[in-house]
């Protein structure tokens, strides 16, 4: 047995866990910080400066954000590959959610890589500052803005629906009714996060 096969269970559970902790938590923090854009440039810039001034910020970024995303993304692509989707034949709500979870996985990955390049890596390389003004300029291109809207909705769906799957994969939501109730709750989380993210996006271009 290869090391991979031997630790199969651990690796799969780690993939599931990383989606919520730390990646999901980071998404919540990120959307909340962005929402300060609604209060204007000063408020947003202050929050960005605060985050940039955190101690060990580079280590936090590498170990709590980048590495978990790389692991979750690479292993996730394998999970996407292994499925043979059949939504047209089995036209059920849960089957569609399963399919969309895989579609949004790929969309989110592409979006995150682009977003990371545009607003984090390029700023690290060329020393450009991330401010309300620079983000607003980035989003002033309608194509990029549209891509951000799609990327945002893909990530909030992937997180909310992934949270539902997480609750089942860890044996927390077991019964039919419990799974249903958590389905509504995570659906509600998807709506709230999407509205929150869209508001912030529009605040930058208003």
């Amino acid at each position: 047995m290869s090391l991979f096969e031997k630790n199969h269970f651990f690796i799969r559970k780690l993939h599931s866990l990383f989606g919520v902790i730390p990646i999901g938590l980071f998404l919540l923090e990120h959307l909340y910080t962005n929402s300060f854009a609604n209060q204007g440039p000063e408020s947003y810039n202050a929050k960005v400066e605060f985050l940039q001034s955190l101690s060990y910020v580079l280590y936090i970024e590498i170990f709590l954000i980048i590495l978990p995303i790389i692991f979750h993304g690479l292993y996730g692509l394998y999970v996407v590959y292994i499925a043979k989707n059949n939504v047209l034949q089995y036209n059920y709500y849960r089957n569609w959610a399963f399919y969309l979870q895989r579609v949004t996985a790929v969309v989110t990955l592409v979006f995150v890589l682009y977003h990371l390049w545009a607003l984090r890596i390029s700023s690290a390389l060329y020393g450009t500052e991330v401010t309300f003004a620079s983000v607003a300029e980035h989003l002033s291109n309608p194509w990029i803005f549209a891509f951000y809207v799609i990327g945002l909705l893909a990530s909030t769906f992937h997180f909310a629906n992934g949270l539902w799957a997480f609750l089942i994969n860890w044996g927390i939501a077991v019964g039919v009714k419990a799974q249903q109730v958590f389905g509504w709750i995570t659906g509600f989380i998807f709506v709230i996060l999407s509205v929150m993210g869209l508001q912030a996006l529009f605040a930058f271009v208003a």
Partner: peptide, 12 residues
């Protein structure tokens, strides 16, 4: 491999 973790909760 091939066990419980392969389930993707499509619930068909």
């Amino acid at each position: 491999p091939g066990g419980i973790t392969e389930c993707g909760n499509a619930q068909n």
